[in-house]
Nucleic acid binder design. Structure first.
Ligand SMILES: [Mn+2]
Ligand SMILES: [Mn+2]
Ligand SMILES: [Zn+2]
Ligand SMILES: [Zn+2]
Lengths: 144, 144
DNA sequence: TTTCATCCTAAATTATGTCTAATTCATCTT
DNA sequence: AAGATGAATTAGACATAATTTAGGATGAAA
């Protein structure tokens, strides 16, 4: 998504365009896929030293509400990402890395809708060990 | 799962059978599907007043390691459940209720395995509004 | 220029645990 | 049945991380 489109989305929700919001959007546009509020703060504070964590949390809320970002929970924290497409997030149990993987099937929410629920979003979190950690041979074997 | 089988599973991992562990297992056997560590503590402390939160956390770890429980994250906390079958957890954005729903398709982890990852488990969290909350007409409409 | 959203500072809150060290007790060994 | 042994439990202070709040100052947009 281009910066101009992101700005338009904020305006659509009557969010003002502030320098702090632009710095956060610049961060997410250069970001490595998945990041936390702390990641955003640590990076943006370098170019905007007066910004605070409270502001970062406010901005992430506004940016998510505007449909620029999406979020999910893993490892006890909230992760944000710009990939709005349907996909699963693979979390490595060893190094913590998060990587996008495809979901082979459609209609994951179908059963919920069949039960009369209104489905807003579906999160798929896959946990396991990534190639790199596997090649290092550090996979804890379950002994029983 | 019957209590005797649960006890066998603990023994298999060399976990001792203590009154506290039995009280926790009794709780989960009568539990409403999904519960937190705090739920367990608040209930078990009534029949075992000396139990502490530290013990509950230790026991939940042992019980999960033994394959009696499984857990997932939602709404910023860890939820435990006895349903070890493949299913999705529906979380109501209004009342917070969690309910099991079926997953229509198999092999959600297939793409991750195709990428060379070892998949340990897959969590599917569906967020939306339950029937009861919908019938109360309290669904926040997104206005744009 | 006015106005109200936004930002800042700093502290509080919430959530989820962990730690220590003394005691107890489940299970094993004899 | 009576030790022995180490795992489990206890009390409750402490830890840590993630967020939220309050209230005054600032500034984006009309
Ligand atoms: Mn992703
Ligand atoms: Mn469930
Ligand atoms: Zn890894
Ligand atoms: Zn509901």
């Amino acid at each position: 998504m281009a910066l101009t489109e992101q700005v338009e989305k904020l305006k659509k929700y009557n969010f003002k365009i502030t320098p702090q919001r632009l710095r956060v959007i610049e961060y997410i546009n250069e970001s490595p896929g998945h990041f936390t509020a702390e990641d955003v703060y640590k990076s943006v504070v370098k170019v905007e030293p007066s910004i605070t964590v409270a502001t970062v949390y406010n901005i992430l809320r506004a940016v998510t509400m505007s449909g620029i970002l999406t979020s999910f929970e893993a490892n006890g924290t909230t992760w944000y990402e710009t990939n709005l497409e349907k996909h699963a997030n693979f979390v490595c149990l060893s190094c913590g890395k998060i990587e996008d993987v495809e979901i082979g099937c459609n209609d994951l929410g179908k059963s919920a809708e069949a039960k009369g629920f209104k489905v807003n979003n579906v999160d798929v979190i896959i946990r396991g060990y990534c190639r790199e950690c596997l090649s290092k041979g550090l996979i804890p074997e379950i002994t029983n």
